[in-house]
Amino acid sequence: MLDEKQLITDCVNEKREAQRILYDRYSRRLMAICLRYCRTRAEAEDVLQETFLKIFASLRTFRFESKLETWMTRITINTALNFQRQRLYLLPMVDVTEIQLMEDENVSLADFHFSELIKIVQALPDGCRIVFNLFAIEGYVHSEIASMLNISEGTSKSQLFRARTLLREKIDQASMKYEEGKNI
């Protein structure tokens, strides 16, 4: 098994076998990220393809200052954001009224399969989905998200609240269906 440094060197030298190994090693992880940011699987695959092309083109600039996976994840997120920018521009995000979550917050997601959760996330409006991913999953703060998406912090916050509400609703619905199916 090739170590990471050797793998990168071979990829930089455009060795096809090494590129394939790198793809096999990280494509599933990056595909999951793409699915979170995109509305459909086809769109996610387009983003993944674009991501790997950028990775192969920019690998020579990788300085080993961070983990390769972290670096690749950042490229994936940026590619996904670029992919969504046109849509975000055409359908600008607007502020929504802040909604507090209900009392029963401690929803367990352990009963849900990843594919079900992804479908729920993909069903969110574009702005909500991206802000929720950046804030809740990637760990960016609102000021960073505002800067990245060229929106105000208030818009970022309201989109996040809306995302949480919608997710909650969809989880509840899915839970009810699950319970009903169980009882039958």
Partner: peptide
């Protein structure tokens, strides 16, 4: 909860 559920997951392209 969401982060734990979906972060680090894998999907085959």
């Amino acid at each position: 909860n969401w982060k734990n559920a979906i972060d680090g997951a894998e999907a085959t392209p």
